[in-house]
Each structure stands twice: as structure tokens, then as C-alpha cells.
Design a protein around this nucleic acid. Structure first.
Lengths: 214, 214
DNA sequence: CGGGCCTTTGACTGGTTTCAACTTCTGTGG
DNA sequence: CCACAGAAGTTGAAACCAGTCAAAGGCCCG
């Protein structure tokens, strides 16, 4: 009897924690959505059950190479990396995602084919999970969100075009200087070998660049 | 009097030509849209006036570096390149667009800032022009198209992620081999120096690669 | 037919990688 | 809380992939 009561209390506490997490994530998301489309109270109620919140610890995987990317993720807290491993066994980071970014392997998500990428948490973090199937349903229900996701995707596209421009325009050194100037806090936040991987060169080379600057 | 009549005939003929062009482009677009969302007869009527058709000749520009990208373009026929010129004066191709592709500088389009890119026709071609403002109106009118454009943008995103993967994973030589194997017809269609530019190396290097393969 | 643009070829250069050894940092278990 | 192992960062030498420059040949279009 006492055992049961205790289990009940623990369960309640877990629920309470989840609820808090969910609310905090959902708050970020709604803020973000309202930057692009305005939702009615009713629509907010409608959209709410389609998302699940998730807390991730450092190094936890959302999905791994070989799996079909299961969902579209909205980062509410923390930092995540989308990367692949080349045939030499070297990790290559394709994208980072921090607060208020959506991340997924969109090719895998759309075509439901295995992803060459892995998505990993770099810090303890929190995100919302919107599964492929669920997203379809949600969009059927709240069609205003089509607009939101359209805008988000077009922005991501713009960012990708600029990224490709930088890759082909700048030398490794210039890329580092430019990036460090644009995102000084972020450079502090992640290990150097990941920055090197993202910028498209080796950690040794980055180390030498930094030595030169001093 | 006779002069007037002749002018009238010429005008009519121009109109007739435009109408034919417009119909052919619009046919491609509607086919493409219906691959993702199904439109009612009424919606088709609604959407029709928002697009204008355009015929481009080889080397014609849709917009140039420094301008704000004025529209989103749907290619119905021909081939286009989005490129920028680096500080050394070398052209770098960021994207090609062929039949049934949308192309624009999405960062410039969204934020209404000057574009670092130029969009140029490589062959005589035909496309539909959807101006920024007009697109907004259209989407307000036919909200089903939000879905279409969302899907298109997400696909483009997937393609960009894969492109970045190839750039960081493969050496120049591997990129060429891979690309030539994937799009053999396209390699025939464009001059080598543009292919080199797109693949991220010099025309001389491409020439040497081709020499090796023989 | 001529001029300019595209492609080819070769010699030289340099930015970046590779490899290996060493140092410093970090986190985990005793 | 310290010790220690593994991870991350540093440094230098040698190798290499691809760029640069220049000169020559081919080809297309006016």
C-alpha cells in the first residue's frame, strides 16, 4: 500500500517534470511561430497535442546514420549537430542547431530513406519532436502552419545558399576569421575540433591558425 | 489607316505569341503543382493571373548582383545559373536550375536586401515570374499553395544538405566522377568552365581530369 | 575568315593534410 | 578529492592536391 503510494508520488512527480519541460519548450515554439503567423487561441489549443518534448543529455543521439530520420526537431535549449562519417572515419558536421532552430535530414524525412547523417546533442538540451506522420496530420488540421513551415524552409534555403557561397569563396583561414567574427559566443561554446569539422578543415589546421593570430 | 491596321495585326500577333508562351509555361507549372497538391478548377482559375511568362535568350539576366532579387522563378524550359563573382573576379556557380525547378536568392527575396548573386539564362528558355509581393497576395488567396511551396522549399533544403555533404566528403576528382555519372546529359549541356565552377575547382583542373580519364 | 572565347598542357607554387609525438584538459572511479 | 586514462589541443616535418600563370591550339559566331 505504502509502496503503491510512493510509486504514485514518483509518477506524479515525473509527470510534473515533463509538464514543466513541455510548457517551456512549447512557449519557445509558440513565440517563434507568432513571429511569422498569428495564431488564434483555438489554433494554439489544436496544435498542442501534436508535439512531444524531450530532454537530451550530452552526446545523446536523436537518430543515427542508417536510420530513417524520424522527425523534425525544434530546439528550445542546447546545441545539436548533424554530421556524417566519411569513408576514412572522419566526422563531418553539416549543420549546427541552437535555440529556435528546426533541424532534420530533410531528404530522409521526405523520401523516407535511410539517412547518411546522425543527429547528436552536444549539451544537455531540450527540444520538441514533431514526427513525420504527425506533422502531416497537424498540417491538415492547422493549415496556417503550412505558411510557417514554408517560411522556415525558405529561410533555411537562403542560409544554405549563403553557406555554399562562403565555402567556395573563402579559404579555410578566411572562413575561420569570418565565422569567429560573426559568432564569437558560439565559437566559445563548442570544442575546436567540431568547429574545424564544420568549417571544412582539420583540427590541426585550426590550431595553427589560432597560433598565428596570437 | 492602313498603318493602324498593320500595327493592330502586329500587336495581335505579339499577344498571340505571349499567350502561347504563357500557356505552355503554365501547363508545366500546373503539372508540377499537382504532383504535390490537387487543385480544383476554381483554384486554377484563381492562381492564373498572378504569374507572368518570360522568354529569355542566352546570356540574358533575370537580375544582377547588387539588385534585390525581384521574384521567385519557375523554369519551364532552358537552363539558368545562379552565381557570384569573388574578389578576384572569378565566377562561382551556386546553383543551376532546369525544367521544373524554382530558383531565386531566397535570402534577398525574404529580407529584401541586395543580392550578391546574379541569375542568368544559359540557353533560350522560358520561365514563369512570381514577384515577391504578388506571391504574398497569391498565397493569401490560394492558401493550398502554401503547402506546395513548403514542400518545394523542404526538398530544396534536402538537396542543399546533400550538396554540402558532397562538397566536404569528396575530392575534386571524386565530385566530378560522381556528378558526371549522375547527370551525364547535363554535363553535355553546359560548357566545361561552368561545370568546373559549380563543382568548386578551376577549368584547368577539370581539363586535366578529363585528360586522365582517356 | 578573323577575333575572341573556350579548352588543353606543363611548370611551378602554396594552402592544407597527414602523421607522429607531445602537452594540456576533463571527467570518472577508487 | 586525488589519480589517472582518454580526449582534446598543439607543434613540426613531409607530402600532396589543386591553384596559378602562361602559352598554344581549337572552335564557334559574326
Amino acid at each position: 500500500m505504502v509502496k503503491l503510494a510512493i510509486q504514485f508520488i514518483i509518477l506524479s512527480f515525473d509527470l510534473f517534470l515533463y509538464y514543466r519541460l513541455y510548457l517551456s519548450c512549447m512557449y519557445s515554439l509558440l513565440q517563434h511561430i507568432q513571429r511569422f503567423v498569428s495564431l488564434t487561441e483555438e489554433e494554439i489549443q489544436l496544435l498542442t497535442p501534436y508535439f512531444t518534448a524531450k530532454q537530451t543529455e550530452k552526446k545523446e543521439y536523436l537518430f543515427k546514420e542508417g536510420q530513417i530520420c524520424p522527425a523534425n526537431y525544434f530546439v528550445s535549449k542546447g546545441c545539436y549537430r548533424l554530421y556524417f562519417v566519411n569513408e576514412k572515419g572522419v566526422e563531418n558536421i553539416v549543420q549546427f542547431a541552437i535555440e529556435n532552430w528546426w533541424i532534420a535530414d530533410y531528404m530522409s524525412l521526405e523520401k523516407q530513406i535511410p539517412s547518411p547523417f546522425s543527429l547528436q546533442s552536444l549539451e544537455t538540451g531540450e527540444l520538441l519532436v514533431l514526427e513525420k506522420q504527425v506533422q502531416e496530420e497537424l498540417l491538415g488540421k492547422v493549415s496556417k502552419l503550412e505558411r510557417y513551415f514554408r517560411i522556415i524552409a525558405q529561410r533555411a534555403n537562403g542560409a544554405a545558399q549563403v553557406r555554399i557561397k562562403y565555402i567556395s569563396e573563402l579559404s579555410g583561414e578566411e572562413r575561420y576569421v569570418q565565422f569567429a567574427a560573426s559568432f564569437p559566443e558560439f565559437v566559445q561554446r563548442i570544442p575546436q575540433y567540431m568547429l574545424a569539422s564544420y568549417l571544412g578543415f582539420t583540427p590541426e589546421f585550426l590550431s595553427k591558425l589560432r597560433a598565428k593570430k596570437r
